[in-house]
Write a protein that binds this DNA or RNA. Structure first.
Lengths: 235, 235
DNA sequence: AACACCAACTGGTATATACCAGATTAACTT
DNA sequence: AAGTTAATCTGGTATATACCAGTTGGTGTT
């Protein structure tokens, strides 16, 4: 009799999900029901669920229940494809929601990275993005309006890369990327409907124009189970 | 009185660590001591510590205690620097330990990726790598010995990239990379001295030669708090 | 000095229980 | 039919307790 009841429970659900007995997006029984069925306390049940959550097999919605995680989308930053396009290409439905949009004065961090004077107006854009109606990431962007006059009058729930191409004859080229597995800050968890402090993926990106000027700085927080990063490095 | 005692405790240690009152690598008081000091049960203390662990602020060693996490190293796969070099450049001391080395028959996954027949002998190499004496990653590599005759007789705790350059006049060039934040499999946690099922970073890498042949396939599992990925994309 | 052993200490797993807070649903109003 | 209210269901936080399983450090041997 190998102990570790929560491992048994974890393996049980893992196998149900792997074998598609429980489909992506479907709701698991409540913690209390599971506990009753397996003669375990809620504490133990929760430990199993949290392990499954770390594996990326299940996710939770605050006080609504536990759900089977859909497959992760593949994100290739080097492909220069917009969110809308690569999500659609993989058979899912993207959706973008604008949470906030204001002109702000560049703070020292943003100003330094953009090579602007502190206080220069930049466009701050806060968006939430969905895959198949599940919120998977929030992003905060600082856009160099100096290079993109009039951009604040456009519909900024659409793809920025398409907007750049159409209105400014520009496209994303060089970029600096940084990834870190970390816990999600409160602003991210509340916007994504996640329990505070759950782990996620933090991406920082600086996009440059063809002539090496900083077009935009992007801070993204993803649900960790929603994305796999894939990059082809070709020198 | 805002509830959530564990958040208070989390913030308490977060601030101690941020202000260097607790230095990197130093040991925290035991869970029981902390509980006594703050009049909290061990369950609550553990919840706070687990949150700090997800933040990357602390880590644990099985039944030895909790420790303050050192800063993460920056890993730039596109820079083609060996582990030894980029760790040293950032002021830390790298160390590599060979856990296993055998010739194995390529299974279908490896054979397909290497464009070899199933069953072709490939060199399997299992290593554990340390930063400042802390084990931070394990890697399992499958090396295309067809391209590198005699490599199994070399010292494979050293840098492979240096070995390639010296003995075979080869260097890493193109590569396919995949990153995923996930939980560490049992083989990784036990080798790293981590509690089973903790979250980590999974990296898969395929290295190609100058003429597009697969040199090596690499599966890495990192402690999530030990590394930040940074890539400069230049088209 | 080297070894074997044991007590003490650490985190790991688990039970039993309670109350809180947000989400959902059913019942009741208007 | 639409809106309000209350009961119920969900996960979130917390106490108190117990025993298990590696690690550590000291004790006593050799």
């Amino acid at each position: 009799m190998s102990l570790k009841h929560y491992r048994h429970l974890q393996e049980h659900f893992h196998s149900l999900i792997r074998n598609k007995v429980l489909e992506a997006g479907s709701k698991l029984p409540s913690e209390r029901e599971i506990g009753e069925q397996f003669k375990l306390t809620r504490v133990t049940v929760r430990q199993a669920l949290q392990s499954l959550e770390m594996e990326g097999m299940v996710y939770r919605q605050n006080r609504r229940g536990w759900f089977v995680s859909p497959p992760a989308v593949v994100y290739d930053p080097a492909a220069h494809l917009s969110f809308n396009i690569f999500v659609t290409e993989q058979g899912y439905t993207p959706h973008t929601e604008k949470l906030q949009q204001t002109l702000v004065a560049a703070d020292s961090e943003v100003a330094t990275k953009m090579n602007l004077a502190v206080g220069t107006p930049v466009l701050f854009l806060h968006r939430r993005r969905y895959i198949d109606n599940r919120p998977v990431l929030i992003e905060k962007m600082y856009i160099n309006t100096t290079l993109l006059p009039g951009i604040e009058e456009e519909d900024l729930t659409q793809s920025l890369s398409q907007l750049l191409a159409r209105k400014y004859q520009m496209s994303y080229r060089d970029m600096d990327l940084s990834f870190k597995a970390t816990s999600l800050p409160e602003e991210a968890t509340s916007a994504l409907g996640i329990t505070a402090g759950q782990s996620g993926l933090n991406i920082e990106r600086i996009n440059y124009t063809q002539d090496k000027q900083v077009l935009e700085i992007d801070y993204e927080y993803w649900r960790h189970d929603a994305v796999t990063i894939q990059i082809a490095i070709r020198d």
